[in-house]
Simulated scan of single mutants.
Amino acid sequence: MSALTQKKERFEALDILRGLAMVIMALDHARDFFALDFVLSSPTDLAMTNMEVFLTRWITHFAAPTFIFLAGIGLFFASGRRTKSQLATLALTRGIWLIFLELTLVGFFWCFSSDFIYKPKVGVLFAIGIAMIAMSVIIYLPRYLIAFISLFLIFGHNMFDSIEPHMFKDYFWIWHLLHVPGNIYIGDIELRVIYPLAPWIGVMALGYLFGPVTKLPRADRKKVFLFTGLSFFVISIMLRWGNIYGDPSFWSPHPTLEYSIMSFLNFTKYPPSLIYILFLLGSAMMLMGLLDRPLGRWSEPLKVFGQVPFFFYILHIPLLHLGGIALALYVFNDASWLFQAPLGETPSGYSYGYELLPTYLAWISAVVILYYPSRWFAGLKASRKDWWISYF
């Protein structure tokens, strides 16, 4: 098998997994704009939710760790045609670009109002941006030090769960940014920290470390991803079952099997707990091994989305937001809660009937609609080498 063929197959497996993560992410954002009441505000609150609503929210946890891990692998791929200095510059500028967009265009898309100026958020793009900036320095370190940093941030950060921001007094904001979600007030601006940053840097660094694995022969790299993924998965189950370590929220048996399962799976995402990361990254790695083979035409849409994930991300938010506003205006003649940052609580008594139906219909529609512009942009990226294209 030629090196060119190996390169093509390697990228197809990565693109398909990345595309799957983007499609699953879109389901969560469809819920943000089309769901009401507890489906929007408390989908994992066992006192309010049900299995259908819980799983609709829970499955979307797969997206963030998978995408950030693959971003680390992508950074390694970029190193093959750049010097270390050029790679660091690429990571730094991409990171700054993502943070800028989170605080401007994407912030506006989430609220369609000036609220984004006064209530910016440290969301997923911000977290990826900071991780990229951190990687612009980390890549200069020996691999064993990168491994230490990555594993410490992933496996060790839950040791600090008992530390509260107020313990740092005037520097409380640092702990909010690194470990504990919360709000940081800067004059009239309320910075909403949703994605604390430290564990995500570890996840991206881990992806960078796994980059060389993708250069192995297919049989060997499949074994590495399947074995590592299964190991992560088993460790997460063992830690969770015994409530040993790795998640500040313990699970407990409930009177029904349904609620016991939900309690067990109700991992902490903000910040991402060790169990959350191991369970979901383990699943992603096993999928990587399974997808690393010739696939049929069914995988084409996922591959397209995986080739242009940022382009898909930028378009899907305003598309879903406009759709949510249109439906709310049609049904209630009111969409006021969809013009706030963060999105507001829906007025009492509002209902679409079966609450999940609009979410799933909007999700499927958005994915179908965005396939065609995504395919166009993927073709543009493949045919042109303009510098700005690499930032989308």
Rank of each mutant, 00 (worst) to 15 (best):
S383V: 04
L370S: 08
P212F: 07
R218K: 12
A71N: 12
L295S: 11
W241Q: 06
Y245I: 00
E164D: 08
L141Y: 05
F109D: 06
S365V: 10
V106Y: 14
L338D: 03
A362G: 11
I96R: 06
F76K: 05
A64W: 05
V124C: 08
L356T: 03
G74T: 04
I130K: 04
A219G: 04
P199D: 10
G156P: 09
Q340H: 12
P271A: 14
W337H: 15
S113Y: 03
V137S: 10
W387N: 12
L274H: 02
T44M: 11
A147G: 10
A91V: 07
W175T: 03
L338M: 12
L151W: 14
L14I: 15
L226W: 03
L278E: 00
W110Y: 13
L356Y: 01
W175V: 03
P181Y: 01
I194Q: 11
G107M: 07
D161C: 06
S374G: 06
K223W: 01
I369D: 00
L361S: 09
W363P: 01
W173I: 01
D32Q: 14
W97A: 14
F311C: 04
D247F: 04
S383H: 12
A131W: 04
P248C: 08
M132G: 02
H254F: 07
S260P: 02
T5F: 13
S299Y: 10
Y140S: 13
L338Q: 12
R293K: 15
L98T: 02
F392R: 09
